[in-house]
Design a protein around this nucleic acid. Structure first.
Lengths: 214, 214
DNA sequence: GGATAACTTGAGGTATCCCTCAACTTATGC
DNA sequence: GCATAAGTTGAGGGATACCTCAAGTTATCC
């Protein structure tokens, strides 16, 4: 029923070793320098020629497909913990804190979630699933009366944009600052803090346009 | 007492014309594409060779020094309006809204204020002055009891990082979204909304380190 | 150990952007 | 008008990064 891979094709021993070295290097390099890091740096750090890199990963995106599922699994862990929290607000807070903590650990993930790079394939799938789960966390917190009722799931996207920049800029000099910024933001998301909003949330169309570009 | 310019040197008529065309083009190009726009695009749009561009503006920063003082004057206008507001909180809100509205109009200014590029010379001076004024606006709003007392002037820097990314990402598809995001944030900055913060504000040292890098 | 398919290599072509400078053009003052 | 200083030009050299492919190397199977 699932037809997993058309032709798994076992790799030759040396090729498998090189693939692994490339993946390790790519994880490091993307994590440190972001998703636009030069591929040649990855090849160099893996101790492999640029040709071999392209042999195993014909595009930059192929790396992402190989790297991010694991990272996004960590995110799913965060999601589950959040949904399991006895208090809905605490769950919501745990979710965003966990999410941003992951982004703060990995510049590549930060770039990916901030939509600074067009996700495709596996990564896009996982993002969709993640967003679906986030919706549940948001609705639950709203229904409990603690998260302000006009905070829509789309607003999470905006929040991620905002925090991703704070994380990026303060990463070296003050790696915890994003928590302070988030705390301000969260204080504005409590029902008791809510004042009328001046602008409607992103529409579905705007959302996908925003995702499409770049 | 002031010794304004060591040698003003009147330009030849055609040179002055070219300089103007370059400034107009640079304002457009930086405004549309950000501070890392290719200089060759500016020369092209000015209808002038790349050599002439370098003749008038030997570095990218020279353009900024020529362009931004005017833009930053608009910011000073915003500042004054904010300080003149009868209500201190309204003044604070007017200040941040005015600031981000300017950033939303001009990708270059957005880049500059988000510290995405090392400012130097005139621009840096103007930023310092602007920050000094912002401090007064913040203190005034705190003293009035409306802005939460633990919001420090340094936190404005973080807020600017956050909003600059939101502005950049939503610029085309939903150019007003930043106002919604800011509204959430502002609701968290009212005294009534305040909960204890988990992290201390940026120290002076961290602040200047952050400014130094990139 | 040899044949063969699998894999690796890295020089080199493309592209973009930076910046310079020797040769040319033109405004200006006499 | 003409001499000259002022200004303009754009080819070209330097960097960086992308990606390809013909030639060379190596694991694997018998």
């Amino acid at each position: 029923m699932q037809q997993p891979a058309p032709a798994p094709k076992p790799l030759r021993a040396d090729a498998a070793r090189n693939r692994d070295k490339l993946l390790v290097a790519a994880t490091e390099v993307f994590g440190e320098r972001g998703l636009d890091a030069p591929l040649e740096e990855i090849a160099r750090r893996a101790g492999v020629s640029i040709g071999t890199l392209y042999n195993h990963f014909p595009t930059r995106e192929a790396f992402w497909d190989a790297i991010f599922p694991e990272r996004l699994a960590a995110l799913e862990q965060v999601t589950e913990t959040a949904l399991a929290a006895p208090d809905a607000w605490d769950g919501f807070v745990a979710f965003v804190e966990g999410l941003f903590a992951l982004q703060a650990e990995d510049r590549g993930l930060n770039d990916a979630l901030a939509q600074r790079f067009r996700a495709a394939g596996e990564v896009e799938q996982a993002c969709h699933r993640g967003f679906r789960h986030a919706e549940r966390i948001i609705r639950r917190a709203r229904d409990s009366g603690q998260l302000r009722p006009d905070f829509e799931p789309q607003d999470l996207v905006t929040l991620i944009w905002a925090m991703s920049q704070v994380i990026r800029e303060s990463m070296e000099a003050a790696p915890d600052q994003w928590r302070r910024c988030l705390a301000f933001f969260l204080d504005g998301l409590r029902t008791g803090a809510a004042h009328p909003l001046p602008v409607a949330p992103l529409t579905q169309g705007q959302l996908s346009e925003v995702m499409r570009s770049r």
